[in-house]
């Protein structure tokens, strides 16, 4: 039998997603926060592909493709933002970027 229950993939995906979310929250380095976001994307993609396989339908993979494109665009803009912020503030500590508070 070459099958693995869907649930395993879903749990794996959920764990990776949650780790990504925790990463966003506990890390102060925006670069790592971005990486965590990528991890969360990745977890979602995993479910897409798994369902695509389970239903014998290629549409899920198309979505993964789109997610990758959007992620690439997001990373490009996000990193550019980080560079710009670093230029003006000479730090990328996310906790120091709280001028909008209160």
């Amino acid at each position: 039998m070459n099958t693995i229950p869907m649930s395993y993939y879903l749990v794996l995906s959920a764990v990776m997603f949650t780790l990504g979310a925790i990463g966003v929250i506990i890390r102060r380095n925006p670069l790592v926060m971005f990486m965590s976001l990528e991890l969360m994307f990745n977890a979602a993609n995993l479910t897409f592909v798994a369902f695509s396989n389970a239903f014998g339908n290629a549409n899920g993979q198309i979505f993964v493709f789109f997610v990758m494109v959007v992620a690439a665009a997001e990373v490009a803009v996000g990193l550019a933002l980080i560079v710009a912020i670093f230029r003006t503030r000479h730090s990328i500590d996310i906790d120091l970027m709280n001028t909008l508070k209160n």
Partner: peptide, 13 residues
């Protein structure tokens, strides 16, 4: 638990 299964080594997209 879903009854769906993921087939390995089956059809390739």
């Amino acid at each position: 638990p879903t009854s769906l299964v993921v087939t390995s080594g089956g059809d390739v997209v």
